[in-house]
């Protein structure tokens, strides 16, 4: 599947990763090569193969409905780039 510059720019935006204009061509080439190499997967016949949904056949533990965590605001906020009055501060979100 061919990968073009515009697609890479769109994907980068979707992933919220700034890619400088001058790097876009180089990156497109790199990603295109990787995808071309990956495309060999299409050779494998996977008709009627169920996708892997779990690596090991285990029954997961489920949580009981008990409050065991939270109430640790300082731990939650201590790495925040900006905080104010018990809140995280983030750039203005325009609604």
């Amino acid at each position: 599947m061919a990968l073009d510059r515009e697609t890479v720019a769109r994907i980068a935006r979707l992933a919220r990763i700034a890619v400088p204009e001058e790097e876009l061509d180089g990156l497109t080439g790199e990603l295109a090569r990787i995808l071309e190499w990956i495309d060999q997967l299409q050779e494998v016949d996977t008709e009627e193969v169920e996708p892997m949904r779990r690596v090991m056949d285990i029954t997961p533990h489920l949580r009981a409905d008990e409050v065991t965590d939270g109430d640790c605001r300082e731990a939650i906020l201590k790495n925040a780039p900006k905080r104010f009055d018990g809140y995280f501060v983030v750039p203005k979100v325009v609604e």
């Binding site: 939270g70 605001r73 731990a75 939650i76 906020l77 018990g86 809140y87």
Partner: peptide
């Protein structure tokens, strides 16, 4: 109070 019912999982 804000951020007092938050575990590291929720953050």
């Amino acid at each position: 109070e804000p951020n007092t019912r938050v575990s590291p999982v929720d953050a």
